[in-house]
Nucleic acid binder design. Sequence first.
DNA 1: CATGATATGCTCATGGAGAGTATAAATGGC
DNA 2: GCCATTTATACTCTCCATGAGCATATCATG
Lengths: 318, 318
Amino acid sequence: MAGPLRKTKIPDSARAITADLVAVLVAVTDGQPKIMTIANAGALPSGPFEFKHRSLQSGLRAWVEAQTGHPLGYVEQLYTFADRGRTGDGSSPHSVSISYLGLTREDQVADGAAAHWSGWYDYFPWEDHREGPPALLAKLLTPRLRAWAKSAASPALQRERWQRVAITFGFEDREWNEELVLQRYELLFEAALIPEAVRESGNAATLVPGRPMTADHRRILATGIARLRAKIKYRPVVFELMPAEFTLLQLQRSVEALAGRLVHKQNFRRLMEQQQLVEETGAIAADTVGRPAKLFRFRHAVLAERAVAGTKLPLSRT
Amino acid sequence: MAGPLRKTKIPDSARAITADLVAVLVAVTDGQPKIMTIANAGALPSGPFEFKHRSLQSGLRAWVEAQTGHPLGYVEQLYTFADRGRTGDGSSPHSVSISYLGLTREDQVADGAAAHWSGWYDYFPWEDHREGPPALLAKLLTPRLRAWAKSAASPALQRERWQRVAITFGFEDREWNEELVLQRYELLFEAALIPEAVRESGNAATLVPGRPMTADHRRILATGIARLRAKIKYRPVVFELMPAEFTLLQLQRSVEALAGRLVHKQNFRRLMEQQQLVEETGAIAADTVGRPAKLFRFRHAVLAERAVAGTKLPLSRT
DNA sequence: CATGATATGCTCATGGAGAGTATAAATGGC
DNA sequence: GCCATTTATACTCTCCATGAGCATATCATG
């Protein structure tokens, strides 16, 4: 990006790079959010991009469907990262990583591959607030982040750091914002509390719990989780993670698994009803304790009926 | 993407590609939204990506700042497209286009380059609803889209097509949704009413008004406009497009320019106040008709004070 | 048959959003 | 100076989504 931003005459051979696809494949099983991993749960599935398919998206979709044997419900591009070669000294080729978010169901995955499903809170233990704020937040994260804030050069910078911490982690009776997954990860990274941030991997005792991943895969995962947590609020994508028929409580548990926090049961049901997102199948759930629940299915018609998108502008209707 | 999605042993030389950056640079001048263009307003500024900078984003930022002489307020990655070479027969190399959205002000741009500012409604005349629905919607788009819907194979497909049209364009007393810029462009593309969609460039009389662009640049622009229209509703990014001091009406006109529709003046002001996004400078605007307006400035502090992001889940606070 | 667990229906208070009315403060034409 | 016009600014009112809690229905189990 040295010259003007338009077609120049640099020979193509001189600027050749490679492109990789990285996938964040999400499923929810028994109320636990999972992601597909390889390399002993230490990496996201990824591979070289080839130009056999029309588009990046169709390439990813085809691959996943071949692996799982079922259509991939929802695919969305996440972000494109540039890596300056693995060594950084120019000895290895530059590459671009294009990451995607995909939604499936665990039971649809054919066995045999080296792929596994891992709970995503293994990688981000501080993100699960379904049973209240995790103990490790107050016990480990708070003191270490406070120490990091205090280590800044000037008092002004110290206050600034701590304010950032308090906002992104919901400290000092600010509200917890479940969408700030990426910001929290990046802050911990900046504070060098994350294994990926410290090359020497020394003094692990001062780090923060949570399973690391190769390269920047955990950052990509954080991006995917953040995107999904935001998306479930205005698009009916949870249903891609559900079986064909489900009870409202099962649906609620899935939403809670993704959001990492509990929702108000009665209001959740009211929302489903008034938005007409589901319809009764007529059947009743078996194998339950307590009063049996009606089974529902997703009303696929809503996808055609509406263009879901909310406005927040004080519009004028005249 | 033929083999498994993980590191394989394909030699890097066999899968070499090139990467380009494409920028959607937005400014608002005199209540009109503009984008930076090159090639006689027929293309977005773009250029080869080189690995001189740490990241894609910093590369773009550095380039734009060198051109305009001022810091680029806001930069955001839009989307990454894959092109199968310009000819499609393999004679030219494959490439990846990484597009960005950036916000500036027109008066900050240094002259001399081949760049110009073009009104973005030149490219999407049907997107400006500030003076009500544009005449060309009812006069041209509706009949041609209806004809396209009727040309489907079966009555069921015809209804399906027309329903899609009605939703994305707000026909048949559905509401106009200003965020569906990309969907509308893609629908017109699919209906072959867009010059870029018809190679032969024959019978332009049956096409739809709106200036075309090279390659898929107009699609990228549509992506950028859609993103920006969504963003201004929950992030204070409009201020990147404003001078240091402005009146509330000027601010409102900028929002309206981007959204393509009018907002309710009193409610708009109430929103600015209660969200504490602006503060009075104490000065009064000169050169005005009517009662003089107070000048305001953006309260940069809000960026630090809050993590703006709304929830729509029926959360439980227990 | 009591208990526990879940499903489901209903009410109530609060606050934000959409919309309209009224008043204030300037300019320019007569 | 008076009046029409234009813009700024202050209130008010209604409607409805949202958060929250209470009450009741319907099952399994000991």
